[in-house]
Design a protein around this nucleic acid. Structure first.
Lengths: 196, 196, 196, 196
DNA sequence: CATGAATGAGCATTCATTCAT
DNA sequence: AATGAATGAATGCTCATTCAT
């Protein structure tokens, strides 16, 4: 029991260290000692806090999902009109650059979901929540409900794909073109002119 | 020069074995001995053919890219009208299910592109070629050139994203809904009614 | 000096816990954390009471030796005639079954004596005391002194050996046959008919 | 398949090395690196030959059992008369000194039998075979069958016990007194005068 | 006095690579 | 050319010990 606060704080540090390590070396090259080094701990200490390494990975994924979602939620809260909200959503939904650690971790662990139910659930949860964000805004516009759902899903999908290419250093996909393309889609789908 | 044909054949077998191994275990869990076992060889033999393991990975990626692209090209060659071609493209561009080995490998190695230029180039090349396929069809329709390019890029992006979620076992994304959403997008963008 | 009584009590508990742990896992598999768990303590607390782990082992051995010896002494104190005393000695000298913790610990630590003088001394002491018990009884019978000593030593040896096989789960040695064989020996050696 | 002879030879070396390591450090202190060092190999190579460490332990036990048994069998084959055979058996059945590696290993692994069926079976097998050796000789003497069996079992038991004390460095048990006591027993049991 | 959170040394094990055949 | 037996470097993990509380 004693000193659970230290425990919690230390675990947060390890999650952050793991996020940096995964961003730097990828899931394939991830070593406990890398996480330990990022966290300024010994490898044994990482094992002490996370007896099962998969638990750490799950918490890193959960943390990245939350982090990404809340950042987007805050982005639209600061804006009043639907058009502005859509623009804000798209802006926050596309990685600013290839080295955004949260996005890199998300793609690493989303792909890991192919072999792991926990990560599949986390990936699904993020997708659903992101779609909800778009749906919430789109439903204030004169679209019928079914169309709004499709557009919301497509918008999130476009973000995911362009994000994958940005993180993967696709030479012909930049954050700017990505946003422009997504906004072009939303413009045509909603009839509301949107410019990043 | 001696028996280069056997060499080539053996390397192809190893590439196929590596594709299966990556699909089964992921890039993170990939061991040379797994590849060897899939190929019915000893680990030493895999090292013999691929002194540098990264070379094998690059050839697996190249092979998967080619495989995916040609399959799509053949899909539209069999169809005469633009609408049918778009439908065929979408059908071939979305994984039939979560266990399609070529798609799983593509996502694993696309994510690996974040840390490796060779894989970034391969990912970019596939994206470009896929966009070209769509552009080629879209340009036969009454869209202006810029719009056609954006729509082509968005179509490929939607495929990529929905493919990622299908492969990652997103509980709310099925190949059917994915295709329907992409076709809904293409319908609204082209004015041509498309039904899978 | 402070509260030496608590200290002593706690050390006794740890000795008992160690006896159970050794019986359960063997000396080879013994971990301080096992002892701690048996005692309901943290590993740190065991280290606190026994800075040197060998000290604990020695006290466990000493305790087991005493425990085994006194139990046998009480066994013959309850009986008046030599024949009954021999029968009682044999009964108490053979493990009731393979899972007697005291006997298992004795054999584990007797074998450990091969590499540790302290344990060799404890083993020797138990042997001597057990031989004395037999000698004490046998000398009340019409044997010459030399013969009585040899018979006493052999009786204890038979107990040790059969005990080893009982504890080691020899499929063909049961407590009953063991006792019968030892009593058969004592019968022939003393001329006194002994039946368990 | 290839070169299975080397494999077998190397495994024999490892068994011998493990025997020496167990004799030196005991089962409790046994480390794979000790075995490797004794065998002049790296720890990884020992793991290569014995993926499962318990397999090695079982083979060491089997080897020690065989070794001990055949040595005794040869001992009586060289002698014609029953009395001489009994004397030879006793001589070969008692460790020459506390540092006989085969005997030390036998006791370590016999005690290990308490927690492992395989070792219990090996211990039982050795006991049975040794009893058979005595029985075989005793049945040539004028004892009734039941008595011969009891005497044979007791003789082996006495050897086991005295051996345990010799190996455990009991200060009051020497190979000489052990043999004398066993022969005294056999003399009284068979009526044949036996002197070591 | 007593604890258990935190540590890192030490261990078994895995695995890519080498090299004799 | 092709193999797989043999190796040892690198890794994760277990666990005794420590020290702040």
């Amino acid at each position: 029991m004693a000193r659970p606060k230290e425990q919690t704080a230390r675990r947060s540090e390890i999650i952050a260290a793991a996020r940096r390590a995964i961003a730097a070396r990828g899931l394939a090259g991830l070593r406990i000692k890398d996480v330990a080094q990022e966290a300024g701990l010994s490898p044994g200490s990482v094992s002490y806090y996370y007896r099962d390494f998969e638990d750490l990975l799950a918490e890193v994924h959960q943390d990245a999902v939350d982090r990404f979602y809340w950042q987007r939620l805050h982005a639209i809260e600061a804006v009043a009109d639907p058009a502005g909200q859509l623009i804000a959503l798209v802006k926050a939904g596309v990685p600013a650059g290839g080295d955004d650690p949260t996005c890199r971790v998300l793609y690493e662990l989303h792909v890991h979901a192919a072999r792991n139910r926990t990560h599949a659930v986390l990936m699904t949860a993020l997708f659903d929540r992101e779609v909800s964000l778009y749906r919430q805004v789109l439903r204030t516009l004169p679209l019928d409900a079914g169309a709004a759902d499709t557009v919301a899903a497509n918008a999130v999908a476009l973000e995911d794909a362009y994000g994958l290419h940005i993180v993967g250093r696709n030479a012909h996909v930049t954050p700017e073109t990505a946003r422009a393309n997504i906004l072009a889609y939303l413009t045509s789908a909603t009839g509301v002119t949107l410019k990043g």
